[in-house]
Design a protein around this nucleic acid. Structure first.
Lengths: 343, 343
DNA sequence: CCTTAGCACTCGATGACTCTGTCTGCTAAC
DNA sequence: GTTAGCAGACAGAGTCATCGAGTGCTAAGG
């Protein structure tokens, strides 16, 4: 990638700042007047032409100003922008809201998404942690009726997962024995580890001879396998996005609505973010793929005991104020990770 | 309400059929040509003028045809339309899909909403049954950590409700005793009845002297009170509505999106339907109140042992084909009620 | 008294045209 | 390398005429 001269950077910076503020194509005149009085519009035009050739800018039509391309934004994010640090008052607000005795992990996450959306004035998205990253607290089997058994798994963090399995009929007192066995034997493992342990034990001698153990293991494995999937998604503050002037177009609005509906896709993209340390910004192709051209997503994974378990982010027009949103998302991921530590 | 002559009914019927098909204002010419060749356009015009005066029709502007008002639709539904019976093939499809071993009541309802939406080509909505209408199966208390207890209530139908309560710290083995006591004592009651029973027992001698009983009752009441609210809502197939040509207008689309977001309101309106036997059609004012002018909702309550527990419906443009949608909703409510009977 | 043909009228939709303001690219001079 | 100046492009707003669908009304006919 070609290097940009200092002056070019300055001009790209000015164009982006102006565009973020107004949403309109920006012309050479404005830059010269408002940002770089020492240069004439003509000079700015020359530079703009260069930047356009490099793919950083584009013109909606010949006689309009220029708007930054996704590539232009990317360059801005990498080379030019300085991330502001989050205002003390905002940090305090977040810390207070998040720690104020949330009973339940779901509730904690819901609060996080509300805060993200309100502070950033955009939509926010949170993927709930994969259950299997958490520590096993308790399992229960409840016989509903002939052949239907409900499995309930509770994690230490207060997540509950339940699922009905169908199979041979087993009496409730037997089921209680199974549950007791599992609850007593498998302390302090993550649910993932527990499943592996069950599988190992399945092959051991004890299981082969003790029918209670073997049946318990069997049910347990079925249950824990089912726990794996179902990543839950919370999207908050869609209205703020719908009301952005950037959505002047009917088809565009429909695209966005559909993109929000189709959570599977968003999850798939956010999962890629999960592995990357720090805050990522998704622009251009990735978003087009979601049917959200001209939008972008600022996202970060959050973790528990240094293992990434979920991700969160802010979705808004590509012309959002990254210097504020990025630290916001970063801080929220940080706080959330800390809170999960304790749970 | 003034009576309509047979001929007027026929003409209103024709106008509505044409409007349902095209979505455009319909003029006298088309009616004369396509539906009532024995009458000239001029005659139709006279009748139309009458119908307009009665509030059944309206003109978007002077030189356009007429479109039926909500009142016109209401009259059509009450006096004119003949409900078709549901095609055998559709009935079979539904019966097959719905009975094909659904493990879980949530799953059953999800299937119902998918079917409703696919068959009607509109959005569908289902309110999950109020938990407290179901029979109590089992309660569990799990101590998460210092002072946080998770309550899990399972109904016979396989609904699970869970909730974290914070209070004084109680050891897990105590909690197990509480749960056992409640599970053994309160068979075969609905959750509603059970709560009442707990409240009664609270005042009895036994509770006063036996601290286990009294603590168990206390926790139980807290838990069951929390179960009451939270009517869950599933809306399926929003896309189909977004893509209707009726939503040509940007603001309208935003209204609809917002209406879908604000589930509380929809629930409140659907709850009114719950008491009414049979299928209701919501038109005009009710829908305007939701920000969904020009849309309507065909809804019906469904019940369990003749007690209404939830409602379901189809939401679409006011110009939907009621003669098909109404029996569809009716049949689905019927099947669902039957299935719930067994659970 | 109901029906109908005929006609004048209304009005949204469409498209051609003009005008204006903005912004560019280029060239020539500094 | 920078800048002033100028011609050219073009979206957007406004004006205007035209078109066509559909009405309401009137007068004639059954």
């Amino acid at each position: 990638m070609t290097e940009l001269s200092d002056r070019n950077k300055k001009i790209l910076n000015a164009i982006i700042r102006e565009y973020v503020e107004t949403g309109e194509p920006v012309g050479s005149r404005i830059i010269s007047r408002k940002y770089m009085t020492e240069l004439s519009p003509a000079t700015i035009r020359n530079v703009m032409a260069d930047l356009e050739e490099m793919g950083m800018l584009q013109q909606p039509h010949v006689s309009a100003g220029r708007i930054p391309t996704p590539e232009g934004f990317r360059r801005y994010l990498n080379d030019i922008m300085e991330v502001k640090s989050l205002a003390k008052s905002v940090k305090n607000l977040i810390a207070r809201q998040m720690t104020r005795g949330a009973a339940d992990i779901r509730e904690t996450l819901r609060r996080a998404s509300v805060l993200l959306s309100q502070i950033s004035q955009n939509a926010s998205i949170i993927i709930l942690p994969r259950m299997d990253a958490f520590h096993f607290k308790r399992i229960d089997f409840v016989r509903l009726d002939m052949g239907r058994i409900m499995v309930i798994v509770v994690s230490k963090a207060g997540m509950v997962y339940n699922h009905v399995v169908k199979g041979e009929d087993i009496a409730q007192n037997k089921l209680d024995q199974f549950a007791n066995y599992l609850n007593e034997t498998y302390h302090d493992l993550t649910i993932h580890e527990m499943r592996d342990a069950l599988m190992r034990e399945m092959k051991s001698e004890k299981a082969v001879f003790d029918s209670i153990v073997s049946q318990a293991l069997d049910l347990g494995i079925t249950a824990l396998n089912a726990v794996e999937d179902v990543p839950d998604v919370v999207i908050q503050g869609k209205e703020t996005v719908f009301n952005k002037p950037d959505l002047a177009d009917l088809d565009k609005l429909k695209d966005i609505v559909n993109a929000f509906e189709d959570k599977g896709r968003i999850v798939r993209i956010l999962n890629r973010v999960l592995e990357v340390p720090g805050v990522s910004v998704l622009l251009g192709e990735d978003m087009e793929h979601l049917g959200m051209d001209n939008f972008s997503m600022v996202a970060s994974g959050y973790s528990r005991r240094n293992v990434p378990v979920g991700s969160l982010g802010v979705i808004g027009p590509i012309r959002m104020d990254y210097s504020r949103v990025i630290p916001l998302v970063g801080y929220m991921a940080h706080i959330l990770s800390e809170l999960l530590e304790e749970m």
